[in-house]
Nucleic acid binder design. Sequence first.
DNA 1: AGGCACGAACTATGGGCATTAGTCATCTGC
DNA 2: GCAGATGACTAATGCCCATAGTTCGTGCCT
Lengths: 197, 197
Amino acid sequence: MAHRTYHCTVTTKSRRLSRQSIVELAIEVADERGLAAVTLANVASVAGCKAPSLYNHVDGLDDLLDELCLAATADFADALRDSVVAKVGPEALHSYAHAWRDYVLAHPGRYQATLRHMPERKSEHIAAANGMTIPAGSMLSTLGIPDSRLDDAGRALRSGLHGFSHLELSNNIGRDPASSFASVIEVLTSGLLALAE
Amino acid sequence: MAHRTYHCTVTTKSRRLSRQSIVELAIEVADERGLAAVTLANVASVAGCKAPSLYNHVDGLDDLLDELCLAATADFADALRDSVVAKVGPEALHSYAHAWRDYVLAHPGRYQATLRHMPERKSEHIAAANGMTIPAGSMLSTLGIPDSRLDDAGRALRSGLHGFSHLELSNNIGRDPASSFASVIEVLTSGLLALAE
DNA sequence: AGGCACGAACTATGGGCATTAGTCATCTGC
DNA sequence: GCAGATGACTAATGCCCATAGTTCGTGCCT
């Protein structure tokens, strides 16, 4: 008989794990079932293996969550950067704000992961977070904010957007969140323009 | 020998539990070790008993967290209300904002509990949350915000304050948070005044 | 081609947590 | 005093993270 022992050629699911693919599966789990559902057991189940196998590629749950945070931060930063290309002033702010909220609603798990505190790997995290703050800074510059106040303005902006998004995610915004968000943008725009004098 | 068998008269810790005292201990644990440390095991240990004993007074962890949320919300609302008595306009806003941040820094666990989503016991939660929104509404009125926009203004205010506080709690505000917070207040004040026209 | 080393999966195990069920002591009211 | 209710306990289940030790397949080296 001619069949050589093609050992596992039948399995369509790639039986080969990697750090990269595990993080991608973790992102799926986070967005679909919440960041809290990112457990080794759940990710392993999605990956078609058992939890201990993940330790060959990832140094435990904390390490996986760190990696998830970095990937999510970079991804979020991309979305924000894209939102302000070729836009200036209040229009850019408007676009930035909506990109923020849209991203959070579309990828809640990734956004939550973004907020993770990482004492180790701090420099990596700061580097990734710069992807968020740098486009925000340029955008605020076009609003007329002086350089000396860019940091403060950036934090105020982030506070407002994060506050609304986080409240909306945790079901703490009542009805008509879209119009409430429009008011947040209104207040931020006026307030930041006042900062520009 | 005259000693009668004084069974447990030595124990100074009151061996009697109650729903009330359990919630108070949970509040302690939340503020001192974070909301995530509020587990039945931890609370029981602080109470000097075993976890299953808590079930005589509380219907599981979720019930305890619900109760914690209600107590924390009422407590937080008191602090906010106190902050604006006999104050109007921007000064009241300034005082309200600082009361918010101070409370969060002093009682992080309670503040986190405040954000809990409670599909059951929704009406109780709304009632408690009114303790926050009503004084905020009156305060915003004194800023000149028209009644038709009080809801929006309240949400924008809450977004800004919650956003900053939550970021500060999760170590996402860099150095000099006090001055960053001053900028948030500045932006909110200008923005809300603009809403008043 | 055969053997060996390594990578990557597994099973087995332990500890922590929430929760339930069943047991026993204590306290109260008659 | 005594009976029933109250409230604490122990024991046991199930899910989770994590570690240790084992097995199996692949591929390199001779």
